[in-house]
Design a protein around this nucleic acid. Structure first.
Lengths: 244, 244
DNA sequence: ACCTGAACACCGTTCAAGT
DNA sequence: ACCTGAACACCGTTCAAGT
């Protein structure tokens, strides 16, 4: 898995110096730079140096940085979606969401990118997948769109939690004590604190991000099951059983 | 020599031309620039010109651009949260989410900012409010955090849909036909299209963003009500009644 | 057609110099 | 202490010039 060569690279030269510049090659290099140094490591100058070419050459294959980032995100998303293939729709949704969560935590730049351009292919693929699963689950026509949207929004919301990278200037403390430090930059007229956050601070410190993400998915799945049950009212109990 | 009194000059002038530079004044100007010209209109040079001062002077009151944006977002969020004050927790959640939705659609820069820095005061305030409402709703202790998180994530996910502004390079068509145009930049090995999106394209074109946002909130509220109903099973029916 | 790389038009941020 | 504004260190992007 670490070694590449998915299909056709098995000829003679594994990697030639003067390989023609391709969009696929550029995207691959971009992903490598992003994975190594984060979002800020991807500049056209660094990318050109990595590919032993000039910065301007890249624009013959990529329109701009936005398209490059979108292509990188789509590449990763395809892998995630292909890896999740359960027969049961609900189980499949759990696999997909868990896979996206893992991808985002492993590569923080992905969260930034998903959130930055909502209509990019990576997000559309995810949306489409959720829509298909929800349809297979038995959600009626008009509610399929709502259900898929809710799942996408939840994933994007979680993605936003992992994008910042170093951008969290005012809240440098990642876990404990961040509430104290963040009370200062409050701007509003009232000096209201965060009563709820202070009360559950213990849970904040101890909680597992992944487990909490899954809990959110379960909440939405329960709500979706209720959509299905609107026609046949008794179906909700079956949905509750599947949720546990 | 003549006037070394540091403070005592401002008597009762309502607004003087040479008002002292304040963080509040800077934030107010920043919001005005953002509302007028979007996120890209806020530069330290434009802000300095608007305040009739030099760019460097701003750094005496604001650490950097991130803190400035966070302060602007917090200012708006305080207004939104203060405007929603229903006694019923579920109704209050609906008011808060609707208010945030309206604020985001009215000012696209707000969506970008909420999503860009998840631990900023504006988001913490929202999270705290959701936590309090969910607690009042009767959700047991351990699930309060999950429920509030799900609501925040949904809002942030929706916020990401409205941030891009002009950044949607590959999908310039906003509504109809965007599926056609976005099939091209697919990167993955398979040339798989978007079967679900194509099938519901009619709904995509006709749907109302605001109504769809509310539908997502209702899905989550139903799931949250089920969390509450785990102990007292009959409470779900009351929740369903409130949902309609 | 593809590539080169210097140059352009911007940023956020800094800092010696003023008041 | 507060302000000034030129200068610095970067960006993404362009484009005349090469091959």
């Amino acid at each position: 898995m670490c070694q590449d060569g998915p299909v056709s690279d098995v000829r003679q030269r594994p990697e030639r110096r003067s390989d023609a510049l391709t969009k696929a090659r550029i995207v691959r290099s971009a992903i490598a730079l992003l994975d190594t140094g984060g979002a800020e490591a991807l500049t056209f100058r660094a990318l050109a140096a990595d590919l032993s070419t000039g910065a301007g050459a890249l624009y013959h294959h990529v329109a701009n940085k936005g398209e490059l980032l979108a292509a990188a995100a789509a590449e990763v998303m395809v892998e995630v979606l292909d890896a999740a293939g359960s027969a049961d729709p609900t189980a499949s949704i759990r696999e997909v969401t868990a896979g996206v969560f893992d991808a985002i935590t492993a590569r923080p730049w992905l969260g930034s990118q998903l959130v930055a351009a909502p209509w990019q292919p990576a997000v559309l693929q995810l949306f489409d997948r959720f829509g298909s699963e929800v349809t297979a689950l038995g959600v009626p026509g008009t509610a399929q769109f709502d259900a898929a949207s809710a799942l996408v929004h939840h994933v994007l919301g979680v993605a936003s939690q992992y994008d910042a990278g170093q951008r969290l200037d005012q809240a440098d403390a990642d876990r404990a004590g961040f509430i104290e430090s963040s009370t200062t930059p409050l701007v509003g007229p009232d000096s209201g604190r965060y009563p709820f956050l202070v009360r559950i601070e213990q849970q904040l410190v101890e909680h597992d991000d992944r487990q909490q993400f899954r809990a959110g998915i379960e909440i939405i799945l329960t709500g979706i099951a209720a959509l299905r049950g609107d026609a046949a009212d008794g179906a909700r109990d079956a949905a509750r059983g599947a949720v546990s």
